[in-house]
Write a protein that binds this DNA or RNA. Structure first.
Lengths: 327, 327
DNA sequence: GCGGGCTGTTAGAGCGCTCTAACACTACGC
DNA sequence: GCGTAGTGTTAGAGCGCTCTAACAGCCCGC
């Protein structure tokens, strides 16, 4: 920095102003500094800047599982919104482990990020709440009753209702649900299924098979239904992966989809969009959720203290696994 | 830090030593400092540490596309290896755009990372080489003729040879290839296909259809082959996504897989492993590649200057889309 | 001609650590 | 007893920036 200042014939302070894009610098000085900086290959040292300014203009983004494309779309939304607000993001991978998440969060803290976004975080609620007391924290995809942490979630119940209503509109009456067990969002999805079945006057025909968000759960769920005798004309699974397992098992059984059985998943993953699969499913506006998380963080930094819990509506994407009910 | 030192009744320097885990501290002092730090909730400021020490113990990891699970596995390998060596990693998302990648790399530089790993990077070769001149840089999944940058890649040709040999061993003689076009690794995959066909005495039966690593390319490739009349008994596609497109189109045509046509993909993505798809494909040892990248970086930091280009062998994963050739 | 306001620039302290070199203390050999 | 070596601890400079407060120079109005 000293070298640049000397080369440009100005003071260090002025170099600092130029590098930060201050408007109160004459065009002449600005050009001189820019040129000197470029010539010397000068690039401000972030650590020094952060230390001196007491802020990092950085948000930490903790993604629970990089293997899951769900998080990639959240990250995209976060990225765009943060860019727009002049914030950088650093991403950490939770690797589906609370211990790894904990270390990632620790390093965010050590780095003194201005805020953090926890996506699909597995950390104990108490820990998250504790973080929120010290730093601006937003949780995405994990509902929370914290008094410090804002949340962004989809309306899981509504998603289930869309799925059931879609199937009911197609004339289905026997609609079974393969559950997500203890997975994130499974409970409200099931509750939404039950509520929508009741609302459609099909309350007596509710059937829930235990599952756990995996492909195997879908396979197993179909087997349970087969063994039970009266097979449903439609199956609504708690996520896409289970739907694909179910699809597989149905075809093995010689049942055509949607000819004999209609199938609806949840999440609208890339899998669902594959033409080979063409799964009707419930979509969450993930990029929007990411952007929303950033906005909540920015508001926090503006000293908002009231907790906000945003719930965004999902929508149904109709593809080729759902069709009219047969007699 | 001053507070902790005062609370523990020692000097600031000693607090620093304890926080960094130095062995030359008495147990008594260590315990006193640890306790005081815990009580006061003290956490060393990374920015200050980095600034003072002149190193960050951090590697920047640039992933070209978070949506692609390929990168998640690379990241896992990197994570584990870096952890073991006492390095932190920060991940940036290139979002398939050279401009975004460029900014990410700039911020790594500004942060003064000790090294960076570029996975599937789209940046111009000259730019990467320039980075390598200043910092320790390793490129994964992108071959490079740089004089400063180490690389880690799979042996794409060998992968193709494994695929062709597998099919030839099953008795296939008409094996077509749906190409990856200008995508990364497409050229050597095609070259490997041609070489292996020749080696198997099937040189005269080589057939390459243009593609581009997408599902549509697979669909289109099958259509081209259908239009050509003599249909092959096996198809080897440049990646899994194309294979799935091909699979789809083959089934639409009433051709059974592997009854009428065998199909082999490349990459062993999660898609291939879905039971519903069960694609025979070529696997790259991605976690190993990530770990290797870290080791190369560590060697660089130990002042190795000779460029190393690691090539790791792929393997074939046989599932249910490949079977004996029919007459 | 002078005070006031504006613009552009700067000196210098300080951010929270690490690191070097020095120092106090104990143990040991002769 | 003294020199030597080793162990544990510390003072203080310095890392590369930002930021406050002050200042120089200029234009303006009266």
């Amino acid at each position: 920095m000293d070298d640049v200042a000397a080369a440009a014939g100005v003071s260090r302070a002025l170099v600092s102003l130029v590098m930060r894009g201050s408007p109160r610098v004459s065009d002449r000085s600005r050009a001189a500094v820019r040129q000197a900086a470029a010539r010397l290959g000068y690039r401000p040292n972030l650590a020094a800047r952060n230390l001196a300014s007491g802020r990092t203009s950085t948000f930490g983004v903790l993604l629970n599982d990089l293997h899951n494309p769900w998080f990639a779309e959240i990250a995209d939304g976060i990225h765009d919104a943060a860019d727009g607000a002049g914030y950088q993001i650093i991403i950490a991978n939770g690797r589906r482990s609370a211990a790894t998440e904990d270390r990632a969060v620790e390093s965010f803290l050590a780095y003194r990020v201005d805020g953090m976004i926890l996506a699909g975080c597995r950390l104990p609620a108490g820990r998250i709440d504790g973080l929120g007391a010290k730093t601006a924290v937003v949780s995405v995809g994990r509902p929370l009753r914290s008094s410090h942490v804002d949340t962004v979630n989809t309306d899981e119940r509504l998603g289930s209702e869309l799925a059931v209503r879609h199937l009911a509109d197609l004339g289905h009456r026997d609609i079974a649900h393969i559950d997500g067990g203890r997975g994130a969002g499974a409970a409200p999805r099931k509750a939404g299924y039950l509520a929508a079945m009741n609302a459609a006057g099909l309350g007596a025909r509710c059937r829930v098979v235990a599952g756990d968000f995996t492909e195997e759960a879908g396979v197993h769920g179909v087997e349970v239904l087969l063994a039970a005798g009266r097979f449903p004309t439609a199956i609504y699974t708690a996520n896409d992966l289970s739907a694909i397992g179910a699809l597989d098992r149905l075809e093995d059984e010689g049942l055509s989809v949607p000819g004999d059985v209609s199938l609806v998943g949840f999440d609208n993953t890339a899998l669902a969009a594959l033409h080979h699969i063409g799964l009707t499913t419930i979509d969450q506006p993930r990029a929007t959720m990411g952007a929303l998380a950033v906005h909540l963080l920015l508001e926090r930094l503006e000293r908002r203290t009231i907790v906000r819990r945003e719930v965004v509506p999902p929508s149904i994407v109709v593809r080729s696994t759902s069709g009219p009910a047969h007699a």
